[in-house]
């Protein structure tokens, strides 16, 4: 057998050369508490910590910048309290940010800071531009409604009012995440944890968003189920070319999924790089500690 040399398609070449980030986040900060004159801006000093000595306010996320490219998976890792969840909840507009901007190239040509969008625009963005999969499926699903209904809710929000077409799309999506079509009208509360996460993923993808946010999606699942969900996420990413931000405290999950990784500590990005570099040649003492705790 001869191994054929691969040719890159023209389209591929072009898309790489003028690569435009899908998501650009600049100066994202989030403060909890009233704040005072001493903590009006987040300190970049790692040693200082993120809690204000004077008023007790906390900068949960401090001046985070990053870019995410189409179809890419960015890992965000850190221990609990590092600001991972606040960051991803801010990105999904669940949380009001204190400072910063976020643009998405497919929304208004990337000209609008999504954090400042009107409530109606934000709702549109959450239905069309991004999907979110929460660690706790109760946050992402209506547990007592049918699984197909959970997807229908998203489709209806995108002005689909044809039951037949809605059900067609719902079964297509559920099939993709390997939920048997015969169970599409069962409520997620009847399902196992892994199935609930899969329903949540299918719901988040209902309107083909270019961006998917995943917050500790495999935490709390059995190991075998975890592997299945991870594999599903990978194959969806390949098939749909959807960009993802994967937040996890589990370096194993990050290693399986992410091309690039950011390490968060006390709300600061202490290191970012290629995932295998972060894992094998960590530069920051904290990352070294984290990596060595794993291995």
């Amino acid at each position: 057998m001869a191994i054929e040399p691969l040719q890159m398609s023209k389209g591929m070449t072009e898309s790489i050369e003028k690569e435009i980030p899908l998501v650009t986040v600049k100066g994202l900060s989030k403060q909890f508490g009233s704040g005072c004159e001493y903590c009006s801006t987040p300190s970049h000093e790692e040693k200082e910590g993120n809690r204000c000595k004077h008023c007790g306010s906390i900068w949960a996320v401090r001046d985070i910048d990053f870019e995410l490219y189409p179809g890419e998976i960015l890992g965000v890792v850190g221990e609990s309290g590092s600001g991972k969840s606040t960051m991803i909840r801010s990105l999904f507009l669940d949380e009001e940010v204190t400072n910063g901007s976020m643009t998405v190239s497919t929304y208004n040509k990337g000209k609008i800071n999504i954090f400042n969008a009107s409530a109606q625009q934000k709702r549109y963005i959450r239905n069309h531009v991004m999907g979110m999969v929460y660690q706790n499926p109760y946050l992402g699903l209506r547990m007592t409604f049918s699984s197909s209904g959970n997807i229908a809710e998203k489709l209806i929000a995108a002005d689909n009012f044809h039951v037949g077409k809605i059900r067609e799309r719902a079964s297509e999506l559920l099939d993709k995440v390997e939920i048997p079509i015969s169970r599409m009208d069962e409520p997620p509360k009847n399902f196992s944890g892994g199935m609930q996460q899969r329903v949540q993923i299918s719901k988040a993808l209902a309107n083909n968003p270019p961006l998917l946010l995943l917050d500790e999606v495999t935490t709390g699942l059995d190991l075998s189920v975890q592997a299945k969900v991870l594999d599903l996420i990978r194959s969806l990413q390949r098939e749909l070319n959807v960009a993802m931000i994967v937040v996890s405290h589990d370096l194993g999950v990050i290693r399986m999924l992410a091309d690039r990784t950011m390490v968060l500590r006390q709300g600061l990005v202490v290191e970012k790089g290629l995932t295998d570099q972060i894992l094998e040649d960590p530069q920051h003492p904290y990352t070294q500690l984290l990596v060595h705790s794993l291995l």
Partner: peptide, 9 residues
């Protein structure tokens, strides 16, 4: 090798 592949900086 790892430097070439950028697994090491």
């Amino acid at each position: 090798l790892k430097c070439i592949y950028r697994t090491y900086i």
